[in-house]
Write a protein that binds this DNA or RNA. Structure first.
Length: 319
RNA sequence: GGUCGAGUAGCUCAGUCGGCAGAGCACACGCCUGAAAAGCGUGGGGUCACCGGAUCGACGCCGGUCUCGACCA
């Protein structure tokens, strides 16, 4: 199988526990004879070293069989963000293409994926300004800040709820810091231009996926998630603000601190992971460029053939 | 068997003096431009355990029944 090497790529996406990693491995193996695919993980938490079990990071064996990119980029005390991911990903994809292979993007982090597939200009950051704004958001009110934003950038202000501190603060930060309107950095996420990425989405019935999530969380615990977390805390007592939010870690830390029982922690992880999966579905499902494949039981068996057929049709008959 | 307490949304519980049944969580839906496994918003949902009574009017008052819990026997 060959695809253009001029900026196109294949994407396999879906909610957590949908089986996208397995599907990607199967696709890469099947295309291996031509050099084929290298996998690019589009995942906000798998970028952290030492966070393996809880992030369902691809196994050592899989990583030996097929090159994986964008795993283990930083230590867990590092505050990671989209732009950093975006530049690392651009470099990785250029590298893959330079070797005549095609990037196979696998991911569930919607924003990170959009930052790769779509031409997005992400504004810079102005930490001092932000700190001041965050302080004012607490002492005064968010509504005040939202009113100020409405003066500086009515378009941006109209697009966000006055109660959303993060968005309001960020938009003001960019306006004040860059001297440009926040809304001038692009049309926002609600535009779906044609892009040279062929995107396949794995779609499950919600109760079935919920069951898979529950099973997987229990398997993670059995595989030693609590030990992984306590070792992580020994090595990095100050997990970064971003790494600390990882599902499974947050709750197990509460348990290790003696605040909740292990059973309670597990129940929390299951619930919050299910809610996360729903949020992922809602993010992806409005993107009309995604080709959905309904999975009922076996992700690999039910999707790989269809994906390969579709890719073959795109490339056209062999000449 | 007796005494006391409880029974209100899927769950945990508020409900003042008798006057249009509430919250949190869950669930559904939407939003998202340097935290995104994060953050924000909107919505649906009720035989107030059951039966009867007094009252213009009952989740609330009176009588009874059932269920659960605690205590006493």
């Amino acid at each position: 199988m060959t695809l253009d090497h001029d900026g196109s790529a294949v994407v396999v996406l879906g909610p957590t526990a949908s089986g996208k990693s397995d599907v990607a491995m199967a696709l890469a193996r099947s295309a291996a004879q031509d050099g084929g695919f290298e996998i690019v993980a589009v995942d906000a938490m798998q970028v952290y070293r030492r966070m393996d079990i809880g992030t369902a990071k691809p196994t050592v064996a899989d990583r030996a069989a097929v090159p994986h990119h964008l795993l283990d980029l930083v230590d867990p005390d590092h505050d990671f963000a989209v732009t950093e991911f975006s530049s690392a990903a651009s470099a990785a994809m250029a590298d893959i293409r330079s070797r005549g292979k095609v990037p196979l993007l696998v991911g569930g982090t919607g924003l990170y994926l959009r930052a790769l597939t779509d031409p997005m200009e992400i504004p810079g950051s102005w930490p001092e300004i932000r700190a001041a704004l965050e302080h004012r958001a607490q002492t005064a009110s968010v509504a005040t800040l939202h009113a100020e934003l409405a003066e500086l950038d009515p378009i941006a202000a109209a697009k966000m709820e006055p109660s959303n501190v993060r968005r309001v603060v960020r938009a003001l930060e960019v306006c004040l810091g860059s001297g440009r309107r926040f809304s001038s950095f692009g049309p926002g996420l609600d535009t779906y231009p044609a892009v040279p990425f062929v995107q396949f989405g794995l779609r499950w019935a919600r109760p079935v996926l919920a069951r898979r999530i529950e099973d997987r969380v229990h398997r993670m615990v059995a595989a030693g998630l609590p030990d992984e977390v306590s070792q992580l805390l020994q090595e990095f007592p100050g997990l970064s603000r971003t790494a600390r939010q990882a599902l499974g870690y947050k709750e197990v830390i509460e348990h290790l601190d003696g605040r909740i029982s292990l059973d309670e922690a597990v129940a929390q992880v299951v619930l919050r992971t299910r809610q996360f999966a729903v949020r992922q579905e809602r993010w992806f499902r409005r993107d009309p460029r995604i080709r959905w494949i309904d999975i009922h039981d076996d992700p690999v068996a039910e999707s790989v053939g269809e994906i390969e057929d579709h890719l073959a049709r795109l490339i056209g008959p062999p000449s």
